[in-house]
Design a protein around this nucleic acid. Structure first.
Length: 735
RNA sequence: GCGCGAUUAGCUCAGUUGGUAGAGCGGCGCUUUUACACAGCGAAGGUCGGGGGUUCAAGUCCCUCAUCGCGCACCA
């Protein structure tokens, strides 16, 4: 045995013993920061930039396998491009995640101390949330390092820090001045559990059985209506029928006064296209204040919109039977009243989707409220535009910006078929409600004094009049600040070098579940603020499911922690398992068996190294390859070229598979096996040629494998002869 | 209701522009041979969901049906 072989190479590969030390070396080198690569001549100073901003994980706890997938894909792309000589920046950060974080902390406090946020007060609650967020942040950063993420930690950002706050306020003011942000009293999605408004996208529909009652408001009322929510009927101001529905023509335009369970209501019979003739009786009891569709009908017919349900989902009209009752109790009361009065014509059970709040699970109660909105359809002038289909100085809308940039070659979505889903969403997009009645987040930068309103980056100065400016109590939807992530992370509104060099970013990589929440909003924000795209390619990975195909979740107890995987099988094995056999946009299953298989792969490479090094002679370095050895090297180069092509086309899974195949079945099973004979040859030319070939193949294969399995490859690199530098900064072997 | 995806070996999945079906895991048999039993060698295993069409040629393109999943809309 060659005496130069390090002790550790004689044993099976031990990832746990290697990985932490390797990461420290990388970090200490400073080469995650592209400027340091340039300073040391490892990247050309005029190299083209390649940038990814990390989708900031929510500071709500720790990372799960979905994050692990995201980090793996991004780190592969980043390490690949860095080795190819690009000026490569991976910019990390975390998201304060407003409602998600606050509701999590509120739950914990409620559980541990039995206190609500109102018992604590704004200041104390924020203190607690901040402490929790800091804790989560530290956990998350540690997890990312364990996974080998080569991000530039010197540039780390937080959606709620000082620089990002300035960016948020600057954009808010600009939109406000352009009339794109407006305050209006209109119907919104109210979450009675979280005591806040939420946007349409934060609603999750849950299928349920519901009783639908068909009845008349009173014995004398001519038309029967159907509803699953009789308690809202005290807020009705009209009955609408389809204009083509001849059954009710004689009543259209007439008005009726009735007393409905003690509440006097005034009903006008109207026609509206929104009504479906075939549903129920074909007549719709219009409750403007508590139904989105009905609100719009009321708009068209100028109907009154009395609010009858309050923010606690309790009745706010009627006598003692209704007033102050929860909606479900009120429903029972009204149903029994209808029965007593003999007004019910039909009672049936139907399937219905109940709107619930994504974060709290509360049942959404649509009600009118004074809130802030972004107008997605209002024309404005886009002063400076780099967008291909919108000229500088021309009129456009936010919706148009979102539409014009995708699918035109400026922004590509991978997989491509998600482009359709994206457009479908835009077609149905309504104004975006951005105010939230929670405390953790960016407070709305608007101040009030009497009838005066001031929107600005800083609070207005108080004068001597004694009246003080008061800031709006609400905070902004968390996606308002994450929508600015690609440029707020680079220091905007300052005109920084980073913005010039690294923006627009190259790739955004995330799950399809936040295509609308986040991706679309980044396109909106960046188009509006910079007149540019935020990224060129959207890479959507699929959901990571457990071995049975179930969604991983804490409550199911099937969640895997990336840290446990790394401790058991090594981060490399976990990374490889997340890529191999998966395809963008498609859900994948992962099991410990699969990960174990790739731990074996890491060990295989380790053993190949042992064989190559223990058969190596220094004298071989100047050897000339024999024709057959040269042919083997050429064959590898073809494989490497194909892997390069696949990486460029974001076919990471194919590249990974080819790498695995080549190393195991070609390099180990064939080349190493036949080498045993050749290395025993007395012909030094043959022997040295083979030695040189083996060392070359080993160096080059671990170089190409490095983006996928950075730890084991770096570990091997440092024990190969003549290598003082880090593999991480090595040049990619193909053009 | 509209749209999107999936359906390939026992299991998990690849298969880029149409050119004689692939991998991993598992199972089976053999092998302790200058790396590796976290291994090697070998064989087995698929009418690529059903049906129809285009083509010299279809897992791949078109139509249709079925099952599963997802998104959007409706949700009176």
């Amino acid at each position: 045995m060659n005496p130069d072989i390090p002790e550790k190479l004689l044993k099976p590969y031990d990832p746990v013993a290697e990985e932490a030390g390797i990461y420290q070396q990388w970090e200490a080198s400073g080469y995650f920061t592209p400027e340091n690569m340039i300073k040391d001549g490892l990247t050309a100073s005029d190299a083209e930039a390649f940038t990814i901003v990390l989708p900031p994980p929510n500071v709500t706890g720790h990372l799960h396998m979905g994050h692990a997938m995201m980090i793996t894909v991004e780190d592969i792309l980043i390490r690949y491009k860095r080795m190819q000589g690009f000026r490569t920046l991976w910019l990390p950060g975390t998201d304060h995640a407003a409602i998600a974080t606050q509701s999590k902390v509120e739950k914990e406090i409620q559980k541990a101390e039995g206190k609500s946020r109102h018992d604590l007060g704004r200041e104390e609650l924020l203190k607690r949330v901040n402490a929790f967020a800091q804790d989560s942040h530290d956990t998350i950063v540690n997890q990312m390092k364990v996974m080998g993420a080569s991000c530039d930690w010197t540039r780390e950002a937080f959606t709620l820090d000082e620089i990002r706050t300035k960016a948020v306020r600057t954009v808010f003011k600009k939109m406000y001045d352009d009339g794109l942000i407006y305050r209006s009293h209109k119907i919104i999605n109210w979450d009675p559990k979280g005591q806040t408004t939420i946007s349409d996208d934060e609603i999750v529909y849950e299928p349920r059985k519901a009783a639908m009652y068909t009845f008349k408001y009173s014995k004398d009322f001519p038309i029967a209506i159907s509803t699953t929510r009789p308690e809202t009927k005290v807020g009705d101001t009209a009955v609408a029928v389809h204009p083509d529905d001849t059954r009710y023509t004689e009543y259209v335009g007439k008005e009726y006064d009735v007393v409905f369970c003690g509440v006097p209501i005034h009903i006008k019979i109207i026609t509206d296209e929104a009504v479906e003739k075939d549903f129920g009786t074909g007549a719709l009891g219009v409750t403007p204040a508590h139904s989105m569709t009905d609100w719009e009908i009321a708009d068209r017919h100028n109907l009154p919109r009395p609010q009858v349900i309050n923010e606690y989902a309790k009745m706010m009209v009627g006598d003692e039977r209704l007033m102050g009752k929860k909606v479900l109790e009120a429903r029972e009361t009204i149903v029994s009243w209808l029965k007593e009065e003999n007004l019910i014509e039909k009672e049936e059970v139907l399937d219905q989707n109940v709107a619930t709040a994504e974060r709290t699970g509360g049942i959404i109660e649509p009600l009118p409220k004074l809130q802030w909105f972004i107008d997605v359809n209002k024309p404005f002038t886009l002063e400076h535009s780099s967008l291909e289909t919108i000229a500088s100085g021309s009129q456009t809308t936010l919706k148009e910006i979102m539409r014009a940039t995708v699918g035109t070659g400026q922004i590509d979505i991978i997989p491509e078929y998600f482009t359709k889903t994206y457009f479908h969403w835009i077609d149905n997009l309504r104004d975006w409600c951005i105010s939230r009645q929670i405390w953790y987040g960016h407070r709305i930068p608007v101040w009030y004094k009497g009838d005066e309103i001031y929107a600005g980056v800083e609070a207005p100065k108080n004068d001597d009049s004694g009246d003080e400016w008061k800031q709006d109590e609400d905070t902004l939807d968390t996606w308002f600040s994450s929508g600015m992530w690609t440029f707020s992370t680079m220091g905007w509104p300052e005109q920084t070098e980073d913005l010039k060099i690294y923006h627009p970013t190259s790739v955004i990589e995330t799950g399809p579940d936040i295509l609308f929440f986040w991706i679309a909003r980044m396109i909106l924000m960046t188009g509006y603020v910079l007149g540019d795209i935020p990224f060129k390619t959207i890479y959507l990975h699929g959901l990571v499911r457990d071995a049975q195909g179930k969604k991983m979740s804490k409550s199911l107890g099937n969640a895997m922690n990336p840290l446990d995987i790394a401790a058991k099988y090594g981060a490399d094995a976990g990374r490889f398992a997340l890529i191999a056999g998966t395809t963008p946009g498609t859900d994948s299953k992962i099991s410990e068996d699969k990960i174990k298989g790739y731990k074996h792969f890491a060990n295989k490479i380790w053993n190949i190294t042992r064989f190559v090094l223990s058969n190596h002679d220094e004298g071989s370095s100047t050897a000339v390859l024999t024709d057959s050895d040269q042919a083997l090297l050429d064959a590898w180069h073809e494989v490497a070229q194909k892997i390069t092509t696949d990486l460029d086309a974001f076919r990471l899974h194919i590249a990974a598979e080819d790498m695995y195949q080549y190393i195991w079945t070609i390099l180990a099973d064939k080349i190493l096996e036949e080498s045993k004979l050749l290395l025993a040859s007395d012909d030094l030319a043959i022997k040295h040629s083979r030695q040189k070939l083996l060392l070359t193949l080993l160096s080059e294969t671990i170089t190409v494998l490095h983006p996928f399995m950075p730890f084991v490859t770096e570990s091997i690199w440092e024990i190969l002869p003549h290598h003082d530098s880090l593999l991480m900064t090595e040049k990619w072997p193909t053009s």
